[in-house]
């Protein structure tokens, strides 16, 4: 699963969003710099990203599900919420690790790598939200948002 998420993030992650050292850290390169046995952050953050995006989708389409929250502009608001949450999480987790020195000291990881990964996570979150809400099969169960997508109504 780690490889799956790694391939997703690195699809546009290795260059230019963040360095390969950051990629190794997220794969779970351990603090002793010996093997990929540390926390597999790609998997965790990827699953959190999916969970948050699905929750935001559920929030708009099935929990709130109100006529006055069903327009295109509301879709963009909820998409922004998903993006911001996922950006924050994807930034905070590696950044805290870097600040605490909890990574292999042979890796060179900076602030811009954390930002790049956060951006990558936010982008995937946006794409996932876009896909879930564009395919009618999911949103058709919503009462008030069954036609709500990024371009209409």
């Amino acid at each position: 699963m780690n490889d799956f998420f790694a391939s997703l993030y690195e699809l546009f992650g290795i260059a230019p969003f963040y360095s390969s050292d950051m990629g190794d850290h997220l794969r779970g390169w351990d603090i002793t710099c010996s093997d990929f046995i540390a926390t597999p952050w790609y998997t965790y953050i990827g699953l959190i990203m999916i969970g948050i995006t699905l929750f935001v989708y559920m929030l708009q389409y099935h929990i709130i599900d109100r006529s006055d929250w069903s327009k295109r502009r509301h879709w963009w608001m909820f998409a922004l919420l998903a993006v911001l949450l996922n950006f924050s999480i994807a930034f905070t987790i590696p950044y805290n690790a870097v600040q605490a020195g909890e990574y292999c000291n042979q890796l060179i990881i900076g602030f811009s790598d954390c930002m790049g990964f956060a951006f990558s996570n936010a982008l995937w979150s946006f794409l996932l939200f876009l896909i879930i809400t564009t395919i009618p099969v999911f949103r058709q169960f919503s009462v008030n948002c069954s036609h709500t997508t990024f371009w209409k109504p």
Binding site: R66, S67, D68, V143, N144, S146
Partner: peptide, 14 residues
Amino acid sequence: NYPYYNGCLNKMAK
């Protein structure tokens, strides 16, 4: 209000 009215219409039409 009208959002409520629309909600009722959407629910009824579903």
